[in-house]
Amino acid sequence: MAPKNKNPNGENVVPEVQQKKTQALILKSSDGEEFSISKSAAGLSVAIKNMMEDDCAGGVIPLPLVDGGTLARVITYLNKHAEDGASDEDKRKFDEEFLSGMEVDVLCDVALAGNYLDIRGLFHDVCQRIVNGMKNKSVEWVRKTFRIESDFTAEEEEQIKKEYAWAWEGVDSDAD
């Protein structure tokens, strides 16, 4: 979770942001929250970088597909990855902790944002985190956890199991 504070101008800032000499940029979420971010951090998003280059932003970049809570998380990630002197090992540790606390629906929101903003590293990490949560699980467990109703008939399901019988080998069908 990234707690948000207000700076004297009333803008949201994420703590631990490096006070960089580079100019700041304002990102505006779908629900109207504004976040200040350094250009170097924002540039890690290919989509924002393109918008900066096109100069269609005028200092404030609206992101109508990302809500404030998700945007705060994404900015926390970008700031860490733009930090001077953060080693790859630091970043790896940060990524691990950053994602490990997230529930699956939060992960999905971050995946959507990562894809929309074209932040490849974040998108890949989040996808892997989502599938890691379900790769060893039974079909029933996945349905229950993700609240999916099966729309297969029993025969259809049996047919799939027969077709790919090997995929069930060595797996406890009710394992969770």
Binding site: H124, M134, V139, I148, D151, Y164, A167
Partner: peptide
């Protein structure tokens, strides 16, 4: 909430055996 393209991209990261098992989740 993920559109179809994104669902595909998330599922593409599943290990192959797990992917084939989970094709029986829903249509």
């Amino acid at each position: 909430d993920l559109n179809h393209d994104l669902l595909e991209r998330v599922l593409s990261w599943l290990p192959t055996s797990a992917f084939f098992r989970l094709t029986s989740v829903c249509k």
